[in-house]
Design a protein around this nucleic acid. Structure first.
Lengths: 200, 200
DNA sequence: TCGACATATATCGAACTGATATAGTCATTC
DNA sequence: GAATGACTATATCAGTTCGATATATGTCGA
C-alpha cells in the first residue's frame, strides 16, 4: 500500500488520538480550531462513523462517561493495535499531494470583470483572514491555554518539535502573504483603474 | 444568497469558460495543470455532469466537433445568460474559507514518533514540491506557451492583472516555505536527535 | 423568557473524488 | 512486431466526505 493518496478520516482520527483520549466532539475541534485546523479538515459527519468503524476494527476503545448537567460522553482511546497501525500507515504511505483551495484567489483571477471596490474588499478580506490565522497558529497563544486538548504536546506540556516546526512554517506563509499584499495591492488597483479608464 | 459557502463545480466551470470556449477535458486541465490548479480543484467526474446540467439550464452551449485521428469533442461556450449568472454569483457570494490540506504537515506533527530519516525525507519532499510549484506558477513559463488554454489572458495574450497578482502571491508563498525550511530544517533534525539520545 | 451559544452524539441527502470503461492515436521499448 | 504506457476525449459509478439537521441539555446575557 505505497500508493499516493490523501489520508482518510479514519487515519486522521487515529492521529488525533495519538495525543491522548478524546471524544468525537473534541476530535472535531482539533480539526476546526486546534493544531490540525490549518492543514487538515474533518467534519462530524465523517468522524463519528469513522470512530464506530475503528472500534469495530479494534483500533480504539471507548468508555461511556456520565456527566453532570451535560450529555454523556464517549471517550475514545487508541489501542496498542491502533497505535501500531497508525505508525505503520505513516511509514508506508507516500503522502498525498498538498491541496490548497481558495475561493478568494479564484475570484481575484477575474478582477478585470469586477467592480474595483469588490476587488479591494476581497484582498482586504484575504489579508484579514491571514492576519487572524497568523495569531491563531501560535502554539503558545494564550487564548488556547484553557483548551484542554492535550495533543501535539509532550509530557511536560511543551509543544513537540514537529508541531513547532509546522506552526512556524504556517506563520511564515501567512507573513509572506501579508507582505505580498502590502507590496502589491496598490499596484494592482492602480493598473485596474487605468484599464477601466482606457475602456471608457 | 449571501451565505458563506465554497464554490461548486458548476460555478467553477462557468469561470473556466470565461476565458473562451473549451472542452470538458480542457477544463479539467485548467484545474490540473493550468492557471487554477494551485487554488482550486475539480475532477472529470464532477465536470462532465456539471456541463450537462449547465447546458440544461441554458448557461452554456456546445458544438460537437469531429477530429481526425481523435475522438469527437464537445466544445462548450458560455451563453450571455451564463456569463451574467457567473458575474452575479461573484458579486453576491461571500467567498468560502480557504482550505489547505497537507498530509506531509500532518505527518510532520508526529516527527518525534518517526524515524529521523523519514522526517528528513518528508521535509525534502515538501521542499521539492514547492520548488516545482514555484516554477510551475510563473504565468510566463515557457513550458506553457504551447498549451493553447486561452484563459486568464486578455486580447493581446497577456496575462490579466488579476492572474498576475494571484500568481505572484503563490510564488511568494512558495518562496517563504522554501526559506523557512532552509532556515529551520537542520535545527529540527538536531533537536529530534538530541531527544532520541536522551531516551536511549 | 427569548435567543444565542456550547457540549455531545447521530444520521442522511447532496456533492465530489477517484477509479474504471471505452476508444482511438502515438511513441517507446523489449 | 508486439507490448506498454501516455495522451486525447467522454461517460459513469461506488465510495467517501461535507454540511445540514435532529435531539437533548445547560449557561449566559439581553
Amino acid at each position: 500500500m505505497d500508493t499516493e493518496q490523501n489520508m482518510d478520516v479514519r487515519t486522521l482520527c487515529l492521529g488525533a488520538l495519538m495525543g491522548g483520549e478524546a471524544t468525537g466532539y473534541e476530535i472535531r475541534k482539533m480539526f476546526e480550531d486546534g493544531t490540525f485546523s490549518h492543514f487538515q479538515i474533518a467534519s462530524l459527519g465523517s468522524i463519528y462513523p469513522a470512530l464506530t468503524k475503528l472500534t469495530q476494527d479494534g483500533m480504539v476503545t471507548f468508555v461511556e462517561r456520565e456527566q453532570e448537567n451535560r450529555p454523556d460522553k464517549k471517550v475514545y482511546q487508541l489501542t496498542s493495535e491502533g497505535r501500531r497501525t497508525f505508525l505503520r500507515t505513516l511509514l508506508q504511505t507516500r503522502p498525498g499531494e498538498d491541496r490548497y483551495r481558495s475561493d478568494i484567489l479564484f475570484m481575484l483571477t477575474f478582477a478585470e470583470e469586477l467592480p474595483i471596490e469588490l476587488t479591494e474588499a476581497l484582498i482586504d478580506e484575504f489579508a484579514a483572514r491571514h492576519e487572524m490565522m497568523k495569531i491563531d497558529i501560535d502554539p503558545d497563544n494564550p487564548q488556547k491555554d484553557e483548551c484542554p486538548l492535550a495533543h501535539g504536546r509532550d509530557e511536560d506540556g511543551q509543544p513537540t518539535p514537529g508541531c513547532l516546526f509546522v506552526a512556524g512554517l504556517g506563520q511564515a506563509m501567512c507573513e509572506a502573504t501579508l507582505n505580498f499584499i502590502r507590496q502589491n495591492k496598490a499596484g494592482l488597483i492602480e493598473e485596474l483603474r487605468t484599464r477601466k479608464d482606457k475602456k471608457a
